[in-house]
Amino acid sequence: MPKNGSAGHRNNAPRKRQVPVAQLDEENPIVQQFRIYSNELTMKHDRHERIVKLSRDITIESKRMIFLLHSIDSRKQNKEKVLEEARQRLTKLIEVNFRAVALELRDQDVYQFRSSYSPGLQEFIEAYTYMEYLCHEDAEGENGTKSVSDWQAIQAVMQYVEQSSKPKEEPTEGEDVPAIAQDESPKKFQFFVDPTEYILGLSDLTGELMRRCINSLGSGDTDACLETCKTLQHFYTGYISLNCQRARELWRKITTMRQSVLKAENVCYNVKVRGGEAAKWGATFDQKPADEVDEGFY
């Protein structure tokens, strides 16, 4: 028996009646319209996931290109070889990965899918402009600075032509040959390069230039170190002239750019002020000092 001496607990709550599920009228125009909306959302989500996967591949390959470009060393004389390999791999990215993204975005509102390919595009612009800077490192621009491609130049590279899978058929008797040629003309499409994404990707280039400045000093190339620092200063001067108080991402990148400029300027300051105290690259230390040299201890 229960401890409270009662006859047990009985659930006296009224039971819920099972209401039969109403059958949807598929012929209802409202139901049909919501079916259309559901299919559109499903297709949009699937396209978004496919673009994200392609953008991830572009990001990974672009990072590898940047690491490859940082392997350039004046002591090894491998600049031309590394630049040629980087140029081929970046061209493959344009012809394969960005072409696939352009096909996904064809006849679509590109701004709806901007967040899905933005990281890959910015990383690609960083790698592409860094390769161009190294290619034109020995050449001076009109204003005495190194030159890289602008937004329109990168947009011109990403122009594609649709490949027709149908075999060419010979016109039969009585058919108009110009009409057939007009129908079979290849259609052109492009990958839209957002100018905002170009500015954000180009701002990341300053971090690689800062590493280039420090690596050049490590390899003994002080001239490249000083020239890279000047390029960083030109970039920073241009970016701080922008009115970007409301652009949080750009303001954050400009803050990071300022830190890169300060690091490069500190390195160049040490080269100018204390450069005479540093040992020249390739100096030998095998020779023992003479007996009459006073080294400061007894």
Rank of each mutant, 00 (worst) to 15 (best):
D25N: 09
E265G: 13
K53Y: 08
A86K: 01
Y236W: 11
V261E: 01
P289W: 02
G174Q: 03
Q233V: 08
Q159I: 01
V21M: 12
R248Q: 14
P167H: 06
D25S: 05
P178Q: 12
W251K: 15
K280C: 10
F297Q: 12
I60V: 15
K53L: 13
Q259G: 14
V21G: 04
A283Y: 06
K166R: 06
N11W: 06
G282Y: 12
Y298E: 12
E137W: 05
G220A: 01
Q163D: 05
G8S: 08
R212Y: 03
R212H: 04
E292V: 06
E170A: 13
E184D: 08
A86M: 09
E95N: 15
G276S: 08
V96S: 14
K168H: 05
N97L: 07
I60H: 08
E126Y: 06
A179V: 05
V293G: 02
Q259R: 14
V271G: 05
R106L: 08
A247T: 12
K53Q: 09
I60D: 10
F285V: 09
S115K: 13
H234T: 07
R89P: 09
R75C: 13
E27S: 11
C135R: 00
L41G: 08
S149K: 02
L205Q: 00
W151K: 03
Q23T: 08
K81I: 07
G296A: 13
P171E: 07
R15Q: 15
L69E: 06
Y236C: 07
Q245V: 15
Y298C: 12
D46K: 10
L262M: 13
P2K: 11
P167I: 01
V161K: 06
E40D: 08
V110K: 08
F67W: 00
H48Y: 10
I58Y: 05
A290V: 14
A279W: 09
L209S: 03
C225L: 03
G8D: 01
T145S: 01
M131H: 05
N97Y: 03
Q33P: 05
Q190C: 15
A22G: 12
K230P: 02
R106I: 00
E49D: 04
N28T: 08
V161I: 05
E104A: 09
A156T: 11
S62W: 00
D286V: 15
E170S: 05
E184N: 14
M43R: 08
R252H: 13
L69Q: 07
V157K: 04
F113G: 00
F189V: 03
L209A: 03
D194F: 11
K63G: 07
E277D: 07
M1S: 10
R89E: 04
G174N: 06
N12K: 09
Q155Y: 04
L134H: 02
S216D: 02
A153W: 04
V101Q: 00
I94A: 10
T129D: 04
V177R: 10
I214T: 05
V31M: 06
K76G: 06
D294E: 11
V177G: 01
K253F: 03
Y128Q: 00
E175W: 12
A86N: 02
G5W: 10
E265R: 12
R248F: 12
T231A: 10
A264H: 02
L262A: 12
Y239T: 07
R211A: 02
